[in-house]
Design a protein around this nucleic acid. Structure first.
Length: 793
DNA sequence: AGCACGCCGACT
DNA sequence: GTCGGCGTGCTC
């Protein structure tokens, strides 16, 4: 028997199947999807079994044997093996890189060659071995050639031998536990506390964690006493990391659905029961109770003995959200998000793989949850760009969801208050079935927003960040003891430093971008390559000391707000939420201390639901409008609509104020009136006219190299290849410099391909990828192919 | 990707 | 003479 494997080496060069002989002792063990350990060239690597055959075309003298199986059960199901192939083909990626994104990083293993001391070793061998060993271990690689020469004689005699050590990325977490030996020794009459503790231990069917006993008031000394008397023994227990172990969840019960909710629920529920892989679009205004529909659908899936995947954007993975799921489904829920450690992620993954969790709630990557019988996949806030991975493999979770639903014959639900144009267009053509939720059960109606024209403010001599209208509204809330949420879509203290004398703005030496001023450590920081320099209050260009800071970031606004209102303010941006748990802490303080103002970047636009928030202000509604991206309007509309939905969600009516320099722009006026369909129509006209998605599919080619000349040569070549090989209905834009021309000292040029139907395109992409992988090895020029890009920049 | 092989320059 | 620099090529 032979196994065709993909080796755990992330390189295009080895992106193919390698056949290995399955040793007889493993023929009944090894299955498709198993992790195995194989000799590969001069070393050993981990590999994944993709298929199993009776014969191989590889000559006998070349075929090697699988050394070892890494797991009892395969880590990939047949479905996930197939899925990885499809994704690798679609996104032009090596198989291994897809497999490694499907699996938790903790499963990656590396091996190292070490020298070991044989039991038969003489004192002499032992002495010399130990003189080179570090922490009792001797890695061959770290050994100097001449030192190896000294060890050589003993290697020849076999006293020292070479072995391969596999190091697991993550170890299981081990804690001390105690187990009863059920021995009726001398009674414990004179030690009632010990007697009690012994009963606690005996009452449990499993060994008890020492930490748990301590929590119940039995000291370690007491347990030690029991151990000494021979009643119990200590042992190591493998415990699962549960990031939510200290949280208490109140039970949450099903709520009665409104008419609109019921219509959507029934239809999707039918698809679920009938095992149809249909896609639904749930278009519901903020607060219309999409989540309740999701929860009840998941319940049906569970009742049918099937599993459920729920995706939410990373920033929406708030404790509020997670709590609701934990409250409804208890321990059946696995939670996966980027703030978990590798070990924690692995444990959640294991919970799913072993069948102990039947529901997963998580960010993008949890679409790969290793369920074996999926009943429903839900993607909440489906328009969010975070569902597309910005690094390779650049997959979109919705694309993966569709593939998985086909396999499992289960419905996919896309939910949003502001669906992406692509999804809404598909629902309009009945490719997706759409349901509208237009009411907010038990809530105030969505507040109408008000637009403040900031150029009018300037004309009237108010050059500050706060319009008079917004300032008065905030003061009003403060007086009434209500809360305000302010959105400012920019971080840092001020955008940049500028010389008043010559106009020089400090630039990143590696990237084509201005440095951002951060006040807390008084530094200038590049947001692309993390280059950092200290602020010198002197122009680097002309030497003038007349330098100031321009633009206004969250730090600066926080100061202004403190000056104006003299109240407590919570600021939430990338800088204040980096620490683990900081996000939760800030939000819970906002609620419990009734802090008057919450100021933040877009991360505050989602999921916040606090009854006392009655005012939402957007300080700069148009920052995203001017981005060089065809989706700029859509993003602006979405963000404004989302953040407006934060106000007046309960008894108190809400008010929303947008400050802008473009008071006439339809993305802003239609967000003000909360008119999605009209926005959709207007924006579709633009997309049709400019020939963009959803009328066309896109592929973005980005070439980066140190020399501009090399970029141009490559992009010209790619351009020609495309022209020669695609049909005339395609539109090729470029080559042109990328919006950020230089990142990390590499120049960047791009080509955008727009196409409708191009069956042969895949081969062209493969050929280009192949060609430029070779070129990359020689010259360092790289080509990135982004299929269905989210950003054209 | 790694790792060995191999062919060149500069050291004890 | 040997050590080690990194270009080249292969991995079932």
């Amino acid at each position: 028997m032979f196994a065709a494997v993909i080796v755990g080496v992330n390189s295009k060069d080895v992106n193919r199947l390698f056949d290995y002989k399955i040793p007889d002792r493993l023929t009944d063990v090894i299955k498709v999807g198993h992790r195995v350990f194989v000799p590969f060239g001069p070393r050993h690597v981990q590999a994944y079994v993709m298929s199993i055959h009776d014969d191989t075309g590889v000559p006998e003298d070349k075929v090697k044997e699988i050394v070892k199986v890494m797991d009892v059960e395969p880590v990939l199901t047949d479905e996930l093996v197939e899925l990885s192939k499809k994704l690798a083909n679609y996104y032009i990626e090596p198989y291994i890189s897809v497999i490694e994104t499907i699996l938790p990083v903790a499963l990656k293993t590396k091996s190292k060659k070490v020298l070991m001391l044989d039991d038969s070793a003489s004192g002499e061998a032992k002495f010399i071995y130990e003189s080179y060993a570090v922490n009792g271990e001797l890695e061959t690689k770290s050994l100097h050639t001449r030192d190896l020469a000294k060890l050589m004689p003993y290697i020849d005699t076999g006293e020292i031998y070479e072995d391969i050590l596999i190091k697991q990325h993550t170890r299981k977490k081990i804690q001390k536990g105690v187990r009863s030996l059920y021995l009726n020794k001398a009674p414990l009459e004179r030690a009632p506390k010990q007697y009690e503790a012994l009963h606690v231990i005996e009452d449990s069917n499993e060994p008890v964690l020492l930490a748990d006993l301590k929590a119940q008031g039995y000291s370690e000394a007491l347990v030690r006493e029991l151990e000494k008397k021979g009643y119990v023994e200590k042992l190591d227990m493998i415990v699962e990391r549960d990031p939510y172990e200290s949280a208490v969840f109140e039970a949450d019960y099903e709520k009665e659905l409104t008419g609109e909710q019921t219509a959507a629920f029934n239809s999707i529920n039918n698809a679920l029961n009938n095992r149809e892989d249909e896609t639904f679009l749930l278009h519901g205004i903020t607060g219309s109770g999409k989540t309740e529909v999701y929860l009840q659908l998941i319940q049906t899936a569970l009742n049918n003995g099937r599993d459920a995947i729920m995706l939410v954007p990373e920033i929406a993975l708030t404790p509020q959200m997670v709590n609701r799921f934990k409250a409804r489904f208890g321990d059946d829920v696995a939670v996966l998000h980027s703030a978990l450690s590798h070990g924690e992620k692995y444990d959640e993954w294991r919970k799913i793989q072993s069948g102990r969790a039947r529901v997963s709630v998580g960010a993008r990557s949890s679409i790969f949850a290793p369920f074996k019988n999926i009943g429903i996949i839900i993607i909440d806030e489906e328009h969010e760009t975070t569902y597309k991975q910005s690094e390779r493999p650049m997959y979109h979770a919705a694309e993966v969801a569709k593939l998985r639903s086909e396999y499992h014959h289960c419905p996919v639900v896309l939910g949003s208050a502001t669906p992406s144009l692509e999804s809404y267009a598909r629902s309009s053509k009945e490719v997706y079935k759409r349901f509208e939720l237009t009411h907010r059960p038990g809530m105030q109606q969505v507040p109408k927003a008000e637009i403040v024209d900031m150029s009018d403010e300037h004309k009237d001599g108010n050059s500050g960040i706060l319009s008079r209208r917004l300032e008065a509204a905030i003061q009003d809330r403060i007086d009434r003891g209500e809360q305000t949420v302010l959105l400012l879509n920019r971080r840092g203290f001020a955008n940049f430093q500028i010389c008043q004398n010559c106009g020089h703005v400090p630039q990143c030496p590696n990237c084509d971008i201005s440095l951002t001023y951060h006040k807390n450590n008084s530094s200038l920081l590049c947001h692309y390559c993390s280059y950092e320099e200290q602020v010198t209050r002197k122009c680097a260009d002309c030497g003038s000391t007349d330098v100031t800071f321009r633009g206004t970031g969250t730090q600066k606004v926080e100061e202004i707000l403190r000056d104006v209102f003299n109240v407590d303010i919570i600021r939430m941006d990338v800088d204040t939420t980096q620490r683990k748990g900081a996000h939760e802490q800030l939000l819970s303080r906002f609620e419990s201390d009734n802090v008057p103002i919450l100021l933040g970047t877009q991360m505050i636009a989602k999921g916040l639901d606090y009854p006392n928030v009655t005012l939402v202000g957007v300080l700069n509604a148009d920052t995203m409008l001017n981005l060089p991206d065809f989706r700029a309007n859509e993003r602006t509309f979405q963000l404004l609509t989302q953040v407006a939905g934060r106000a007046g969600r309960h008894e108190l009516p809400g008010e929303v104020i947008f400050q802008t320099y473009n008071p006439e722009h339809y993305a802003i006026t239609l967000a003000m009136t909360n008119n999605y369909t009209e926005f959709y129509d207007r924006e579709m006209q633009f997309r049709k006219f400019a020939r963009y998605s959803p009328y066309y599919f896109h592929i973005l080619f980005t070439v980066s190299a140190e020399r501009i000349h090399d970029c141009l040569e490559a992009t010209t070549d790619i351009h020609k290849t495309l022209v020669d090989n695609v049909s005339e209905s395609c539109i090729i834009i470029g080559p042109s410099p990328s919006p950020i021309e230089r990142i990390k000292n590499k120049n960047r040029f791009q080509i955008l391909l727009k196409y409708k139907r191009e069956p042969e395109l895949k081969h062209v992409l493969d050929a280009l990828d192949e060609k430029y992988t070779q070129i990359y090895k020689k010259t360092g020029l790289s080509l990135k192919i982004d299929v269905d890009p989210q950003y054209i920049m």
